[in-house]
Amino acid sequence: MPRVILTGSIQQHVGGLGAVDVDGDTAGAVVSALEAAYPPLRGWVVDERGALRLHVKLFLHGKAVGLNAVLGRDDELHIVAAISGG
């Protein structure tokens, strides 16, 4: 099944793990499954509308993708906080 790589402060919401194997055939399905398995993560990657938060990026094979990206069984999906702040 796909593997989700999490970095930074959202790791705290998945028990401190940096990588989690989660079943799903799209990025959106994987994020939903991750939220179901780790409820504190709800609202951190996508908002109530199911939209990816503005400053959160998903990467697959080195490219930024959206929630509709199709995932293969051995793919790694990276959830990354955009570089921003001040």
Binding site: I10, G50, V56, A81, S84
Partner: peptide
């Protein structure tokens, strides 16, 4: 409000200790 991950509400009995994340406030989908 986290700069990337949005707004969330937390509560604690001691502000120097661990804070728990509340369920909501969040709109129905």
């Amino acid at each position: 409000t986290h700069g990337q991950f949005g707004p969330h509400l937390f509560y604690a009995d001691n502000p120097a200790g661990a804070w728990q994340q509340a369920e909501g406030p969040a709109f129905p989908t």
